[in-house]
Design a protein around this nucleic acid. Sequence first.
DNA 1: AATGATCCTTAACTTTTACTTAACACAGTC
DNA 2: GACTGTGTTAAGTAAAAGTTAAGGATCATT
Lengths: 226, 226
Amino acid sequence: MEKNNFKILVVDDEPDIVEFIVYNLKREGYEVSSAHDGLEGIKVAEKVKPDLIVLDIMMPRLDGVEVCEHLRRNPTFKNTLIIFLTALGDEQSEIKGLNAGADDYIVKPIKPKILLTRVKALLRRLSPDEVSGKNQIGDFIIDTEQYLVHYKKDHYSLPRKEFELLNLLISKPGKVFHRDEILNKVWGTEVIVGDRTIDVHIRKLRQRFGDDHISTVKGIGYKFEA
Amino acid sequence: MEKNNFKILVVDDEPDIVEFIVYNLKREGYEVSSAHDGLEGIKVAEKVKPDLIVLDIMMPRLDGVEVCEHLRRNPTFKNTLIIFLTALGDEQSEIKGLNAGADDYIVKPIKPKILLTRVKALLRRLSPDEVSGKNQIGDFIIDTEQYLVHYKKDHYSLPRKEFELLNLLISKPGKVFHRDEILNKVWGTEVIVGDRTIDVHIRKLRQRFGDDHISTVKGIGYKFEA
DNA sequence: AATGATCCTTAACTTTTACTTAACACAGTC
DNA sequence: GACTGTGTTAAGTAAAAGTTAAGGATCATT
């Protein structure tokens, strides 16, 4: 069981279904809470501030669409992901749900695999900074797992700082990274290094891969040219 | 037809389906391009940099899942939304698709309403990011993230003060900015510079973009002409 | 623990670029 | 026609980044 820190709230009036979903989500390492109708759902949501809510549409007291609309009005939940559960073929609910601000819906009966992949797909969007795996742009492929940079059919094993600097710049091609930002993300907030340190590492990257890929924006910082 | 600036790419090997989807999206005001197989899809994507891609899974040359995986490796497309088209009940593709980094999928046969509400739901999530960092007026686009000024299909990398001055004036087209105000906002309160300094920077901007965009209000300051 | 290799940071120096100034020209106003 | 505010230009100055080599830190190897 991998560890991840996402909080998920499951709201449905049928206890069996809640249990079934909660069980599957917990097995994946999510932190799961639950509620059994719309009103309770809102209360729990306000308390635990989940990253994602699995929300049944047909419920007593307050249906899923209303819950969704209510939550979306609150800035706290503007970026909370919401997945609806709908009865098979209920196209109307589906449209209403998405219009109410939901991010996805799943048709009952629920298949665990489908549920989990969709949850994962949505949550991935929540942590965009994560640069795991491979990162390709132009002639470059950055392999963060192996700490390797593939460039034009060759591959290089860069020193750590050089690698992290390049990886940072490449993570958003074209974006100008302020020197402060670079220091924070590559060197961390605690360490204080001199002004020329960044330059020296930039220079090494330019020596390796040519001057055309990293450009200077004077007074601001550096950027990777797409 | 409302105006929105989102670019959508449709990739499917069946011309009828492409046409059908393109027609529906265009009616909503989206800027739509299309491709007829995976390889072409990637090429077009790299050219137009769409905000969202509607991607068929079953295609010759390169199937949708592969296209998706390829694109996701490139930081440029890290936040590009991807919707898969799958045949009815093909649960395996669905899971593979979402694992490959898709944001949603739609089961064929496609119903326009479903397609459009889902497209809208996904794009809504994108908007706040898109807006920040870009400022468009007339022929100008100020990109503060890349520190670039796009002007009539060309782009310029201005020195800092010039950039900030232009950005200030353009932030409220038509408004007259007092010289004092300009000094405060661009130069800061601490620094004291001579009278002619502003003029010189205004002049540089006029040299670059022509005299028609920035006009002098004698005794007061300058303004950007909309 | 000693060795050697690699990597990181620094400091001094050079180069480049951007910014400011000063001197003067011009235009409109009283 | 003196005054005020802005336009223009080129030259001087300041600031940021580039470059280099050297010293120290770190790490793997023996």
